[in-house]
Design a protein around this nucleic acid. Structure first.
Lengths: 235, 235
DNA sequence: TGAGAACTGTGACACAGCGCACAGTTCCGG
DNA sequence: CCGGAACTGTGCGCTGTGTCACAGTTCTCA
């Protein structure tokens, strides 16, 4: 759990990829990198688990992590994926919280850490950074609200369709203009997102595959017919 | 839908109640009030409905409003209550969105309006205001995430208990130290919050009343046994 | 003060999907 | 290259709850 000692150059690279610092000069960034250790973490490892309430924020430089809760009955509840460049963490100053929240790497990832005192001193006194923070949290809010919308749909079919569509459009990195979007996710994780169980997701996806709407692979869904997906999700 | 012409004094009063301006001097506030019309709106009136995408933000000065979506099948999906002093609105600059969202007054309310250009010029260049905005959006994020947590609970009983507890602790204005919290809400609205229907909520609440956990009134629920509620919600 | 709107109470029935059980397949590290 | 872990596929019974239908009660405002 301790930060790996790394070269200052790596620290700089790490911060450089973080969105909220996008408006800073190289010199400013360099100064920041003095106080921001870097953590490397492998796919499926836990970065953070409940009651480990260090007052820190994390900035994801490369890779991909997911946040989730465990409901009382032991089910997983998805709270969101963090994309490279985004920040997250337990930090009431910036209204972020991870109470009862697990953070797990989906891919091998690179993460910068910054402590409460440094955040207050360095981040919350700069208009350029604050504006970016507002945008960042705002985007998280939008994502979360959309997830809420998905959870409110009645049937599992609607929820699966809506979730796939959203993730496809939001996270896919493929060449633009291509008709087929790709979503890398297991049935288990998808189940946590839409608030159902793995078996139901499997059945639903197979039904969709049968009618040609999607194509399934291990840990992956290819979206062939976006129009149909929109239809299934209730537009 | 046009702003009611009001005295500059009312405008000032209105802005003065808004949290994000809490750090400003009276003189500064006065200047702001020049560009922020005031709207009065009565209980149950609509302030905003979809596709009416004016680039504005609203600040609730007094009263209480609720945001909600309509799902494809015509059901209401609750997106949150806005408390006095908070801001909300369609404004991609600050990462807020109300796409497909209705805003309805729960009580008679007083609302300040501010336009995109003024927001950019006056709000996003002041560290004090930006910090407050970050806090405000952060709180919304926390609320939304908690609602997501509620929706992920399986049984209606758990969801009702969790929702009552949260709303009681978060919104109740009673004298502190009192054991009985009060939540002013109809079964219909509660159903929209927890993602079920009115009848199920009625049945669940009556069951809770039978065992003495809550006491019901028209449009109101008194929480008597918080410990039991926590238990029912799965802690 | 009276009529209609808003809110609450309750029964009956069908069915989506949760949970369990088990099997087959693909991946990955040693 | 082998064994275990991770992931996917499928059958089946039980039950919570969505839906419809209707009645009773409390507000509100004209």
């Amino acid at each position: 759990m301790d930060a790996v000692p790394v070269s200052t150059s790596l620290r700089f690279q790490c911060l450089n990829a973080v969105e909220i610092f996008a408006d800073l000069t190289a010199a400013e960034l360099k100064a920041f990198s003095e106080v921001a250790p870097v953590k490397e973490i492998r796919a499926r490892e836990l970065l953070y688990s409940p009651h480990q309430s260090a007052e820190v924020i994390f900035m994801l430089s490369a890779g991909r992590v997911k946040l989730y809760h465990l409901t009382p009955d032991g089910n997983m509840l998805h709270r969101g994926f963090i994309q490279p460049g985004a920040m997250f963490g337990e930090m009431n100053v910036i209204g972020q919280t991870m109470l009862g929240c697990y953070v797990e790497a989906v891919e091998d990832s690179l993460i910068c850490v910054m402590y409460q005192a440094d955040v207050e001193r360095l981040l919350l006194n700069d208009v350029r950074i604050l504006r970016r923070i507002v945008n960042s949290i705002g985007q998280r809010l939008i994502d979360t609200e959309y997830q809420l919308y998905i959870m409110a749909l009645k049937t599992a079919l609607e929820r699966v369709a809506a979730a796939l569509l959203y993730m496809g459009l939001r996270y896919d990195q493929r060449t633009p203009g291509q008709e087929t979007l790709r979503v890398d996710i297991t049935h288990d994780d998808l189940a946590a997102i839409i608030g159902t169980n793995r078996e139901t997701v499997t059945r639903t996806l197979n039904e969709m595959q049968r009618e040609g709407t999607v194509k399934l692979g291990r840990g992956r869904v290819l979206l062939h017919d976006l129009r149909r997906l929109r239809e299934l999700s209730g537009q």
